[in-house]
C-alpha cells in the first residue's frame, strides 16, 4: 500500500470506539440548489470547537438520533475554526432527516476521517480540478487553501459540471475565485436559451485547453462514471497515474476501517481514502461491480 502517500490523521472527535458522537448546533443553513444545502455546525463543547482541525477532502459522520449516520464531506475553509460547513444532498433517510433540521437544532458529529487532497505536495504544479454535481463540496476546502497560497501554485483550472444551471453550487463564490487567477470552465448537461455558458460534459472540457503533463496534477470528484472519463482524458494527455487524485464514494459507516462496508480491494475507503492517487485504485477501477 505504498501508493498511499497521503497522510492519515486521527479523528479529532474521540468517539471512544463506540461511535459516540459529539454534539453540534446548526448555526446557519445555506440553501445551495434544489435538494442541496450547506449546514454550518458549531460544537457545543467550546474546547472541542477550538481543538477541531480537518484537512481538505476529509469527511465527518453526521448522526441523527433514531436515523443513523451519513458520511458528509466538509465543504468549508480548513482555516475557519468556529463553524464547520457540510454541504448535504438530501437523498437518503439520514440526509432527509437533516433536511428537517432548523437553526439551533443539534446533530451528532464524529470525525474528521480519511485522507485528504495532498495540496501540500502539489505546490509548484498546475492543477486541474475536475468536479461534477455534488463533487464540488469536497474540493472547496482545497480551493480555499489554494487561494490562500495562490502564489505557490502554477495554473489552476476548475472544470465544473452540473445537470442544469440551477444545480450549480457556490455560484456566488465562483467570480471571487476567478479574480484570484483561477480559470473556471463551467458546463451543464442541459439548459434553456437563457443560459449563456457552456453546455456539455466535464470530460470534454479537456478538449478546450492544453496541459503540460510534466507539471500537472488532476484532482477529481463526482459520480464515479464521470471520474472514469476524467481520468481517461487525463491519461490521454499523459498525466502520470500518481498525479491524478480521485475521491471515491462507498458505503461508509464507521470511519475506522472496521465495519467493512466501504472496501475496494485491499482498501477501506473511510480510512485509506476517500482521496486516492489513481495508481492505487487503478487495478479495480474498471472491474464491474467491484
Amino acid at each position: 500500500m505504498t501508493a498511499l502517500a497521503a497522510v492519515r490523521t486521527s479523528a479529532a472527535v474521540n468517539d471512544g470506539g463506540l461511535l459516540k458522537p459529539s454534539w453540534a448546533e446548526v448555526v446557519k443553513i445555506q440553501p445551495e440548489a434544489e435538494g442541496i444545502a450547506t449546514y454550518w455546525l458549531r460544537f457545543q463543547d467550546s474546547n472541542l470547537s477550538k481543538a477541531y482541525r480537518f484537512l481538505p477532502g476529509q469527511f465527518n459522520m453526521l448522526y441523527m438520533p433514531g436515523y443513523g449516520e451519513a458520511a458528509i464531506s466538509i465543504s468549508s475553509d480548513p482555516e475557519q475554526r468556529d463553524v464547520i460547513g457540510h454541504t448535504v444532498r438530501f437523498v437518503g433517510n439520514v440526509t432527509r432527516a437533516i433536511n428537517r433540521l432548523k437553526i439551533g437544532d443539534v446533530v451528532g458529529i464524529r470525525g474528521p476521517f480519511g485522507t485528504h487532497w495532498p495540496v501540500e505536495n502539489l505546490e509548484g504544479k498546475d492543477l486541474i480540478i475536475a468536479v461534477g454535481g455534488i463533487g464540488i463540496p469536497p474540493l472547496r476546502p482545497a480551493i480555499y487553501h489554494i487561494l490562500r497560497n495562490r502564489a505557490k501554485f502554477g495554473k489552476i483550472t476548475l472544470l465544473y459540471g452540473a445537470r442544469t444551471p440551477s444545480d450549480l453550487l457556490f455560484s456566488s463564490e465562483l467570480d471571487e475565485w476567478r479574480k484570484s487567477d483561477i480559470d473556471i470552465q463551467i458546463t451543464v448537461d442541459r439548459a434553456d436559451s437563457n443560459w449563456q455558458g457552456q453546455v456539455g460534459v466535464v470530460p470534454t472540457l479537456f478538449y478546450k485547453f492544453r496541459l503540460d503533463p510534466t507539471r500537472t496534477a488532476v484532482l477529481t470528484c463526482g459520480p464515479e462514471i464521470m471520474i472514469r472519463f476524467v481520468v481517461f482524458e487525463a491519461l490521454a494527455r499523459r498525466v502520470p497515474t500518481n498525479q491524478i487524485y480521485v475521491s471515491m464514494e462507498r458505503n461508509m459507516k464507521c470511519g475506522q476501517g472496521s465495519c467493512g462496508h466501504c472496501q475496494i480491494g485491499p482498501y477501506f475507503v473511510c480510512k485509506d481514502g476517500p482521496v486516492f492517487p489513481f495508481s492505487a485504485v487503478e487495478p479495480y477501477f474498471n472491474v464491474e461491480d467491484f
Binding site: 435538494g35 438530501f90 437523498v91 437518503g92 461534477g132 454535481g133 459540471g161 452540473a162 445537470r163 444545480d167 448537461d189 442541459r190 456539455g200 460534459v201 470530460p203 470534454t204 478538449y207 463526482g222 459520480p223 462514471i225 464521470m226 472519463f229
Partner: peptide
C-alpha cells in the same frame, strides 16, 4: 466521436437525483 461521447454521458444523466431511482 467527441459529440457521441458527450451525448452518451448526457444520456446517463449522471447528476440526476439518485434517490428518485434508488
Amino acid at each position: 466521436a467527441g459529440r457521441l461521447m458527450a451525448t452518451r454521458m448526457q444520456l446517463l444523466d449522471m447528476f440526476s437525483d439518485p434517490s428518485s431511482e434508488a
